[in-house]
Design a protein around this nucleic acid. Structure first.
Lengths: 162, 162
DNA sequence: CTATTGCGGACATATAGCATCCGGATTAAA
DNA sequence: TTTAATCCGGATGCTATATGTCCGCAATAG
C-alpha cells in the first residue's frame, strides 16, 4: 500500500504557493524547478489539483497556478484526494458472500465487520489529514528557515515573477 | 493507494480460524475453498502470515494453519503488517533538500512538516486497526449468523477435519 | 504575431500486484 | 515402508498501476 509520490510533490508545491502573497501564483515549470522535479510530470499533477479545485490555473503568458482558497482553508486531505482520488484503500469485494457456506437467503444487509473496521481506521486517518492546513505547514516551515534561506527564497521568487 | 486484496482474504480466513476450537486449524486449501478464492494464492498469503507469527503452520498430512495466539491477542493490524509490510504508505523522499533554494548548511535535522503530518495520520489509522481483535470480529459475525448458517458452517468444518 | 502557459490525450516504460506451478521437506496414516 | 497430504521457497508469467514524456490545441500577455 503505497501513496503516489505526486502527493509529496504537490504538497510541497502548495506549501510554496501558500508562502506567496494572496492571489500570486507560479507556473508549473517553476514549481517543478523549485524542488528539482520532472517538469512534465509536475505539470500533470498540477492539472489534477486544478480539476479538484485546490488551485486555480491562469492560462497564457505570465500565467500559472495559484491557490484557489486561503491556505487556512486547504488541508492535506484536499491534496491527497485530488491526486489519489477519494476511494478507500481497502476495497471490500464481499468475499463473505462466496463459498460453500453461504445460505440462499444470506442476510448480508449488515456490512462486513472487516470492512467496517477498515472504514473506521481510514476515517481516523482522513480526520487527521483534514486537521492540517497549508497555513499550518507554511508557518512552521517559515519559522524553521534561517535568514539566509529566507533571502534566497525571496530572490528566487522575484526572479520567477519578473 | 490501494491495499492488497490478500488482506481481505487472510482477514476473513483468520476470522474463520478464530471460530474454531483452540489449537485446531485448517489447511490452506480449505481456507481458500471457504471463500471460493484461488488456492495457490491463498497458500502464498498464509505463508506470509506464518512468517509474521500470526498463524502457526503444521506440516504433513492432517496439518494446516492455526492461530498462533488467542483471537483476543491478534489485531487487524497484525494481519495488515504481515501481508503489506509495516512501511508507511507515505514515503518521504526529502525533496525539500533539492532545488535552487537549499542553503549549503541546510538545517534538515527537524523532520519535514508534511512528513510529520502523514506520520500522525498513519499512526491514527494503525491505532484504530490495533484496537480491533479477531475475537471482536468473530463474535460479531457469529452473532449475526442465522441458525441455518451456523449448522452449515459446523457441517462443513467437521467435513474438513474428518 | 509571437512567446508563454495550461489542457487533455496518446504513448512508452517501470514497478508492483495477482496468480500459478514446481521441487523439496515434513509428517500422518495405510 | 510406502503413500498421500501439506507447508515452504523460488521461479515464472500476466496484468494493472504508477511513472514519465510528448504533442497538438486553446488561451493570453506583450
Amino acid at each position: 500500500m503505497k501513496m503516489s509520490e505526486g502527493v509529496e510533490w504537490t504538497a510541497h508545491a502548495c506549501v510554496l504557493l501558500a508562502a506567496l502573497p494572496k492571489g500570486v501564483g507560479l507556473p508549473a515549470n517553476a514549481l517543478a524547478e523549485f524542488h528539482a522535479l520532472a517538469p512534465a510530470y509536475m505539470a500533470k499533477h498540477m492539472q489534477a489539483l486544478a480539476r479538484a479545485g485546490v488551485v486555480e490555473s491562469v492560462r497564457g503568458a505570465g500565467g500559472g497556478y495559484r491557490l484557489a482558497r486561503a491556505p487556512r482553508d486547504i488541508s492535506l486531505w484536499d491534496i491527497v484526494e485530488a491526486i489519489e482520488g477519494g476511494e478507500p484503500a481497502f476495497r471490500c469485494v464481499e468475499i463473505r458472500q462466496q463459498g460453500p457456506c453461504v445460505t440462499p437467503q444470506g442476510d448480508f444487509r449488515k456490512p462486513c465487520e472487516i470492512h467496517a473496521a477498515f472504514a473506521r481506521a481510514e476515517n481516523a486517518w482522513r480526520i487527521e489529514l483534514k486537521s492540517v492546513s497549508l497555513a499550518d505547514m507554511a508557518a512552521e516551515v517559515a519559522r524553521k528557515a534561517t535568514p539566509q534561506k529566507r533571502a534566497l527564497l525571496t530572490q528566487w521568487i522575484t526572479g520567477k515573477l519578473a
